[in-house]
């Protein structure tokens, strides 16, 4: 086991992302699906921040030299903002689902099934 490099973070992100995919495909509980979505967003964030840490070429010209390689971290902040939006709206939808169907198993909400 040598020193920690970029690949270690990428492999960690890939494993977490795949676990999120497995959860989304397999779970029926709507909150469980939301948990898996959060896992996938966090895996993407790990990749963004790792690339930001190991980049050696600035994307945009900037007048602040310390900020030259911060693009990945700024992207990660936007991901966190959108995850907060998504969690709030998804939980509102789940509460409505529970009021309409009495359950949050997504297979039971099949009113529009032909």
């Amino acid at each position: 086991m040598g020193p920690i490099g970029l690949q270690h973070y990428l492999v960690l992100g890939a494993i977490l992302f795949v676990l999120g995919v497995i959860g989304i495909v397999s779970r029926k509980n709507a909150v469980g699906i939301l948990i898996s979505i959060e896992l996938m967003l966090n895996a993407a964030n790990i990749n963004l921040i790792a690339f930001s840490r190991y980049s050696n070429k600035p994307i945009f010209p900037t007048t602040m030299p310390e900020a030259a390689y911060m693009d990945g971290q700024v992207f990660a902040i936007f991901v966190i903002i959108l995850a907060a939006c998504e969690a709030a709206v998804a939980l509102a939808i789940i509460l409505n689902l529970f009021n309409m169907f009495g359950t949050i198993e997504v297979d039971d909400a099949d009113t529009m099934r032909g």
């Binding site: 490099g5 970029l6 690949q7 990428l10 840490r53 190991y54 980049s55 050696n56 390689y69």
Partner: peptide
């Protein structure tokens, strides 16, 4: 992959 991190 580039395994040399830039200075924080």
């Amino acid at each position: 992959w580039n395994n040399v991190p830039t200075a924080p």
